[in-house]
Simulated scan of single mutants.
Amino acid sequence: MRLLTPALRRRGVTSAVVVGLTAALGACAYNETLGRNQLVLVDEGSLIQQSNAAWAQAIRTQPLSRDQSQTTRVRRVGERIVQAAGLTDRSWDYAVFVNDAPNAFVLPSGQIGVTTALLQLVRNDDQLATVIGHEVAHVVARHAAERASSTALAQVGVAAVQGAAGDYGQQAGGLASIFAQYGGLLPFSRRDELEADRIGVDFMARAGYRPSEAVELWRIMAAQRQSGTPEFASTHPSDATRIQQLQQYIAQRGYS
């Protein structure tokens, strides 16, 4: 077996980086909703297939609420948000999962899941629309595809650093991973959350819900949250940041 010299190894690494960057540049496209360019390397069909599989597994393995009025409520609010978002080109499924953690999710393949704890937490349909609007905004913004693409590109970069560093590849790769996580992927994730907040508020307003209740909901969330994770190391912005930016955006748009 022929061993690669350091020069050949570096040349191979450089080629891999060039190929990765070329693919990334080719996959950049302008997202009108976000008002920025977006890196999407992930095939949409594959993402839909994975989402359908994830939903089927959740329905099969997680306890569902037997209270039909809860599902009806989520469907009623969800349908108004989906229409406001312009996503009526696909059929939508709705489910309420019995869970003590207040949470919700929307899948690109057309499914909306809400936990019983979230329904107990929100004080009105406007606040429920806040959560669903935020999650639907992630779909419209293609954040899942973008995040998967950024992660894949970061992995190429880490592998390149390890290859170029030779005998010190493991240590260098570890440092590169830390930088990619805290210098790139997490800030991108926090950016995605704030974008989804703003877009979700727009969907709320179009659907006839009160955007001001988005601020009230996050105040409720802040009061019951017990996480001590600093913002720089979190995938989500702090509650204070989120509330401040929502207030500014709602005022800017003239919402009530």
Rank of each mutant, 00 (worst) to 15 (best):
T5A: 13
R9M: 05
A16K: 04
V17H: 00
G20D: 05
L25Y: 08
N37Q: 13
V40D: 00
V40C: 08
V40S: 02
D43Q: 12
G45D: 03
I48M: 10
Q49E: 03
T61E: 10
P63T: 08
L64C: 03
L64R: 15
S65H: 08
S65V: 03
S65F: 06
T72C: 00
R75S: 14
R75N: 10
R76F: 08
R80L: 10
I81C: 04
Q83S: 15
T88P: 01
D89R: 02
Y94M: 06
Y94P: 01
F97A: 00
A101S: 13
A104P: 14
L107W: 00
P108H: 02
S109Y: 00
S109V: 09
S109E: 02
G110I: 05
V114G: 04
Q120V: 02
R123T: 15
Q127I: 11
L128Q: 12
I132Q: 11
V136S: 05
A144Y: 06
A148E: 09
A152Q: 09
V156K: 11
G157E: 02
V158Q: 05
A160G: 07
G163N: 02
Y168N: 09
Q171Y: 10
G173V: 05
L175I: 10
L175Q: 11
I178V: 14
L186R: 10
L186D: 06
R190D: 00
R191L: 11
R191F: 06
E193V: 13
R210V: 13
A214C: 15
E216R: 14
R219N: 15
I220A: 13
I220M: 14
Q226E: 12
Q226A: 11
G228A: 07
A233Q: 12
D239M: 12
Q245P: 03
Q245G: 10
Q247T: 14
R253A: 14
